[in-house]
């Protein structure tokens, strides 16, 4: 809170204090450009992270609550084993619903691989049963044992094998997005520190004069901190606006495009980029203040 109150203290500015530092210098453009470029990249990293998060949640939610039982049995036993499986499922705790997939539904599932003309009725396809869990979930191992006893041709597939790597991949992608944002912040801090050091070195005479007439270190540091924080906010606002515009112009979310067309913000998450200029201001404030106070300790 002390940090925030200090930041709030300097943001309104003291025009006379600001004037003690000469206004020009190459660090002006450098800081604005750095903050702008980093904010632009941060918008994309944020969009990536949020999209990955949505994907992970979607996969996780959609797959976690469903499972499939595949019954492979000789033609004469198929119906009997299907009935036996349904009977087992009715008495299994944690299953909210179970239904046998129709021939038409199986045809739709096979459509991407075999086309519309596949004579499903004539093929020895296994019978599929879809299960939907309730909130408590079912015990997969116990169900497998019961199915082995009642319907030897039934195999439970709870999607765990392929769901876990997908969810883990999406989770890692989300983590990478956040790590990118942290790295962007750290790079911004490093660039602003370099710019601040250059500005402090270029204004050695100004600093000596201010110390001579009784200026405290914090007074001198604030003049630099205000300037660099202001420049960082200015650059970050421009970079964020351009980044958001670029994300908005990406192709809209279409299932055919998969993950790539889902890269962006949805609903209230469009507000998240507003935090980037604030983050840039905090980074610039901390970096410049630390650099200024460190350099000023070298002056008597």
């Amino acid at each position: 809170m002390k940090f925030i109150s200090r930041l709030a203290d300097i943001l309104p500015g003291d025009t006379r204090a600001d004037r003690v530092v000469p206004p020009s210098g190459f660090t002006v453009g450098l800081t604005v450009f750095t903050a702008g470029a980093m904010a632009f990249l941060a918008v994309f990293a944020l969009a990536l992270s949020l999209a990955s998060g949505r994907l992970a949640d979607r996969w996780s939610d959609a797959l976690a609550r469903t499972a499939t039982i595949r019954i492979s049995a000789p033609e004469g036993q198929m119906q009997a084993q299907t009935d036996a499986v349904m009977a087992v499922l009715v008495t299994t705790p944690g299953i909210a619903d179970a239904r046998v997939l129709t021939v038409e539904e199986q045809r739709v599932l096979l459509l991407p691989w075999f086309g519309p003309d596949l004579p499903v009725e004539e093929l020895p396809l296994p019978q599929l049963i879809e299960l939907i869990e309730d909130d408590t979930g079912f015990d997969g191992d116990s169900l497998r044992l019961r199915l082995a006893g009642e319907a030897p041709g039934a195999v439970l597939d709870d999607h765990t094998r392929w769901r876990r790597p997908l969810v883990a991949a999406a989770g890692r992608l989300r983590l990478l997005g956040w790590i990118s944002i942290v790295l962007i912040g750290a790079t911004t801090a490093a660039m602003i520190t370099l710019s601040a050091n250059a500005a402090l070195a270029a204004n050695e005479r100004v600093i000596r004069t201010l110390r001579l007439v009784g200026a405290r270190d914090l007074y001198i540091a604030r003049a630099f901190v205000r300037r660099f924080t202001g420049r960082a906010i200015q650059g970050a606002v421009i970079g964020t606006a351009l980044g958001v515009l670029a994300v908005a112009l990406l192709p809209s979310d279409q299932s055919a495009g998969g993950f790539l067309t889902g890269l962006g913000f949805q609903g209230w998450t469009w507000l998240w980029p507003l935090g980037i200029p604030v983050l840039a201001a905090l980074v610039a404030y901390g970096a410049t203040r630390a650099a200024a106070l460190r350099v000023l300790r070298g002056y008597t």
């Binding site: 003690v20 007439v213 200026a215």
Partner: peptide
């Protein structure tokens, strides 16, 4: 003399008061 060359003379002379707040 050690002046701030970018500030007019009156602001330079008033500088000790300025930095003292």
């Amino acid at each position: 003399c050690q002046f701030l060359d970018h500030l007019p003379l009156d602001e330079n002379i008033a500088l000790p008061m300025t930095v003292a707040g």
